[in-house]
Design a protein around this nucleic acid. Structure first.
Lengths: 103, 103
DNA sequence: GGTGGTAGTCATCTTTTTTTGACTTATTGA
DNA sequence: TCAATAAGTCAAAAAAAGATGACTACCACC
């Protein structure tokens, strides 16, 4: 069984999944904020007007699954969680900036 | 009427619209194919398995409106139309490739 | 044992995107 | 003028993404 099925959706375009993931609602903002400082859930919820728990939760989880953000639990009084850029996330930063410059 | 409304969706993230546009279904493939040779409608329809007229039509139109592709009418026997990269589209190419290398 | 803060989940509803299939326009060669 | 090919459009349905509001878990302090 060699390659019989032509999966034109993904085969030909490795960037597709990454692009789609990056472009989901709130994701570009989250990524950009993360290049500045680690993210915290309720802070984001207040910061990003019009956002909501569910969407942020999903967005953060997907950025995490894509290996762009990493979750850190911080044992403080009311228990904090911080999301910060991974190495892959940092590698993405200059690409993101050149995209912005193109606009 | 100065800026009263805080449009946090776009203000803070110039790349967002471009990312969203680029990530629509079929768009990354169309872009990538266009970096190789000009695109033709029915050829794409056969080439991209699972695609359909409507989606390709919309995708091509949006890539055109975004200034990435340009439409050329070629007066041949059954009338051909070619979509080719604009300068902006060519500027995007290296960014696209670095995205692919990141995956 | 009740209150308050952080960080969520869950079911449901709404909105946006994508697909389907029938129909349209333009040109040309027989 | 009829058939064939290229390049679409349009209305409707289906699927995916996003929003809403209620609820949960964990800890600490009073």
């Amino acid at each position: 069984m060699t390659t019989t099925k032509t999966d034109s959706t993904n085969d030909s375009c490795p960037a597709q999944a990454l692009l789609k993931m990056l472009s989901g609602k709130w994701k570009p903002q989250l990524f950009k904020l993360a290049t500045i400082s680690p993210l915290r859930f309720n802070t984001l919820l207040r910061q990003l007007e019009g956002s909501n728990k569910q969407s942020l939760s999903v967005a953060l989880k997907e950025l995490e699954e894509a290996g762009i953000l990493q979750k850190n639990v911080i044992r403080l009084r009311p228990l904090h969680i911080e999301y910060h850029l991974t190495e892959k996330g940092r590698a993405l930063t200059p690409i993101f900036l050149s995209l912005e410059n193109l606009v």
